[in-house]
Design a protein around this nucleic acid. Structure first.
Lengths: 193, 193, 193, 193
DNA sequence: GATGAATGAGGCTTCATTCAT
DNA sequence: CATGAATGAAGCCTCATTCAT
């Protein structure tokens, strides 16, 4: 029963919102995802709002800052990635688990060049970088540990190493690399000997 | 003996400029390099001009557009990278050569935010992306080929693979990874077996 | 009964704006009118904005381009001129009507440098020159026709002749001529015999 | 023997220049004429210089200011117009003389939209407006007087009237009016009765 | 709460004029 | 003297964010 997401989202206000407010938030996030993917970090808030079918004012009510929106977007990715890790843990073979995880990640990244694009511009203080959140690190660590123990990857590969490999993977895919192949390189990089 | 580049800079038209003009151009490029390294793609033209100790007008005389300047800057990086490749070729051991090359590249990336931006950023139509110039590709190919032939790297590693690995390297370093260690992962990724 | 224009302003799209937005638009136009009258085509957007008591952004929301604003302003002049023509038509005596019209025009020109600029300046592709709009030409024609029929002016005076006489009138007034007297010359030029 | 041009040009320095300097001056004036005609008041000094085949520096040596250049250009027109007036005076018939003069002027104007364009933008203080120079006024007056005395034009037409009629003529022609026809209107405007 | 109009600091670029070569 | 590189004030416009409706 590992890793249940806490009921209150870490960053946003904990108060239970009205139904339409929550729906708006979703629509904005979705629009943001799409807009970033299409246009890159240059998207304008107005465009995102229009895409979401709300006024800018509404957008700003949910995300007081462009950076806040990006942060939320990243957080979503992180959460998805945590979920993937959890799913990986359900596999029998620790080696297979990690292979699946990398390919899964690569595939997701292939769909969201804009997100990575946005990330590379934003300077999260080391503290609230979602990729460095406790949950994220813990979930990665779980998969890594199993793989290390099983000898599927080198013993010296740390969580940090892993995160940065993922970061690099994202970048190359964003630039047009073939997800499958780049994923293979990552795996090769961490395989023993 | 592939990958020789003509000694004359490919960047600018060869018109013989006045001495001071040429010097200013150099100063601007240097300032641009520095500003670009510190601030990334977001640099402001006025700042570069001030840093170079010239008026904006002068800057614009040499580079009619911000994009032109950025392009020239990137081109310089590319040329430096080509030079590194050439230097790598002077080493006896092909394996050592490629190791040196990766570490050298990582170090440079660590020093320049602009370089990182440029390597992972896109912004260039696939056509005039300096990183995809013939010269650049040829020089990478030369090093790779020797390494492949010597069995220092896998036989199936293409230039494209290589460029994307470098791109990923840049991204992870941009995000704070240790250049040395990430370089090692890249090497591990391409090593045989 | 030629030359009727719909009461709705031909200038802007008919979207029903918020009250304050409409008011701002009016204020901007008024400020533009004034600034244009004083300074001519050289007006600066910032000045107009300040004069209107709004931010530049607002100005640009209403008129995405300086040229757009100028065009709208000119269009207003044209409309005023059409209105004058309509008023002229209400006079009993066709000769008196045209006399009144010329003097009226001269007076307006004397008051607005921008109007003078616009009338003699070109800047508009022949197609969307508001002075050559159907409405404008039709309204002039109506007055001219009546005058021709009544023998108040020569039978061979065309609308084009008329427009150009007005253009010349504007120029001379711009250069300092006495509006009244120049108007008289125009009338003398078209009178029979 | 009226109206001989003083040997020293009114505005420029009276010192006899080196032959090449004088030639440069001529070339600049010619280029200016052409450039203004083609591009209107927006021409850039650099362009004029290039067209003249000299450096900007040279241009500025001859005309310290863009306005100075325009002034010189206008002055040339004025001088040509004075010459025309002188030629008109050689005709037997005073009425024919003035007719010829107007048509001649109209034709010249037809060729130089840009010049008029430039004029309308420049605010010569009433003092150094070349069109109001003594020579110019005197030469116009000579033709007018003869015409008045002969009853070819109305007795009340003053030099000022005349100048402004010419100004209007220029404007309408600049805007595309047919020179011949507009000239006729001017003549009609001043003819007795 | 939602909307979209308003704001204005700040960015890029132009061009008349100056000045070192 | 000629040249054309350098200058920088000033202009137009963008876009994240605020606030009246």
């Amino acid at each position: 029963m590992a890793g249940q997401t806490s009921p209150a989202p870490a960053t946003a206000e904990a108060r239970p919102q009205r139904a339409d407010a929550r729906r708006n938030r979703e629509r904005i996030l979705e629009a943001g995802r799409k807009a970033f993917a299409d246009t890159g970090r240059g998207v304008q808030m107005d465009d995102i709002a229009r895409l979401a079918g709300v006024g800018v004012g509404t957008l700003y009510r949910h995300f007081p800052t462009k950076e806040d929106l990006v942060l939320a977007l990243v957080q979503q990715s992180v959460e998805a990635s945590i979920a993937s890790a959890r799913e990986a843990l359900t596999r029998e073979d620790p080696g297979e688990a990690i292979e699946w995880l990398v390919h899964e990640a690569a595939e997701k990244m292939a769909r969201s060049r804009g997100l990575r694009d946005a990330m590379s511009g934003i300077e999260f203080g080391d503290d609230n970088n979602p990729w460095q959140s406790k949950d994220k690190r813990r979930s990665s660590e779980a998969v890594l540990e199993r793989a290390r123990d099983a000898g599927a990857i080198r013993a010296d590969v740390t969580v940090d190493d892993w995160q940065w490999l993922m970061c690099g993977l994202a970048a190359s895919i964003a630039d047009g690399a073939d997800p499958e192949r780049q994923a293979e390189f990552v795996l090769a990089a961490v395989r023993p000997r």
